[in-house]
């Protein structure tokens, strides 16, 4: 090892030390300035904000639903879906309205569309979680449509409904997705 090697090693060690110190220093400063859970808080705030906005948008739909005025709720929901196609909550309401009207197959499909758009609906770590509601429905749906499939094995609609059930069950089961 000659002088240049020694110098190089010293420079590498020095630069590493400086970089590490800068990184550590920055982290300490950032943590002092912000609350430790700043990321989590920001995420929580974003959910709160989203839920408040949604509450305003879907106010009428929710009200009609509570009063049992399902055709009116559906009509309002159709308007909202045109104005806000990005709102996954539309499909949750759609599913709930179908369910209230006894249309299990359509309700399950609505939940599928909602979960495809917003996976947080089946993520129990988020405030949007409605997994229990969906789970109950798909359990009922699986039994019903499995029976129907046994009676009408070639019925495309029944097979489609079962696919929706399996999709939702798979999402509820978790996994790396």
């Amino acid at each position: 090892m000659d002088r240049l090697d020694k110098l190089s090693i010293a420079v590498i060690a020095g630069l590493t030390l400086i970089s590490m110190s800068m990184l550590v220093n920055r982290e300490i400063t950032t943590r002092r300035q912000d609350n430790p859970g700043v990321g989590a808080k920001a995420e929580k705030d974003s959910y709160t904000l989203q839920m408040e906005v949604d509450k305003k948008i879907f106010q009428e739909v929710a009200s009609y639903k509570e009063q049992g005025l399902y055709p009116e709720a559906m009509a309002k929901l159709t308007v909202i879906m045109k104005e806000h196609p990005e709102k996954s909550l539309s499909y949750v309401y759609l599913a709930q309205l179908y369910l209230k009207q006894g249309k299990l197959r359509d309700a399950i499909h609505g939940y599928r569309l909602a979960v495809e758009m917003e996976p947080d609906y089946v993520d129990e770590r988020t405030p949007l979680f409605i997994g229990d509601e969906i789970k109950k429905l798909v359990t009922e749906g699986r039994e019903k449509f499995s029976r129907e499939k046994a009676l009408k094995p070639k019925d495309k609609e029944v097979r489609k409904a079962l696919k929706d059930v399996y999709y939702l069950q798979s999402r509820l089961a978790g996994g790396c997705e």
């Binding site: 699986r142 079962l162 696919k163 059930v165 399996y166 069950q169 798979s170 509820l172 089961a173 978790g174 996994g175 790396c176 997705e177």
Partner: peptide, 9 residues
Amino acid sequence: MNAQPASHL
């Protein structure tokens, strides 16, 4: 076969 975590058919 069905409803397995993160799987498809």
